[in-house]
Amino acid sequence: MAKPKIATTSLAGCFGCHMSILDIDERLVDLIEVIDFDKSPIDDIKTFTDRCAVGLVEGGCANEENVDVLRSFREYCDILVALGGCAINGDIPSLRNTVPLEECIREAYFDGPSVYNPDGVIPNDKELPLLLDKVYPCSEVVKIDYSIPGCPPHAEAIWIVLNALLKGEPIEIPYEYMRYD
């Protein structure tokens, strides 16, 4: 029987949650005995090759590309997991949510104290994804089946949740791994 597949991605996040995945440490070896990674920065597969049992999404949606990737995760993954604070509520990137987009850009390219932009350009290449008006938590964009809180989540929490999901068992994060910070 083919091993179930897992996909992971980082949207508007800092890859900290992926670091936490790696923090599963030597048990990663046990993990790849029973699963294959599909689209994921861990194996550098860029596009889905197959349906996945579980998708782990780090980060919220700050731009159109994030939304596009999230949509494909929803399409290809049976169970979609919001991994970490940014995916759940936008977290650090969403600090901009109380400021209009235009002002954010002005601050980033003109007014910020550390800006050096003598030509006064705002990068605007077609390759650059357009920004959304604010950073959206994943659950507002697509249906999310499960969330693992934490900034980043504890490796143990990820391990426990993944195991439970793969075995189809009820998920419960033990108190000591339940955290928002």
Binding site: I88, S94, N97, P137, I144, S147, I173
Partner: peptide
């Protein structure tokens, strides 16, 4: 794990 309501920011 996550609030069920949309954030107001």
């Amino acid at each position: 794990n996550a609030p069920k309501y949309p954030f107001m920011y």
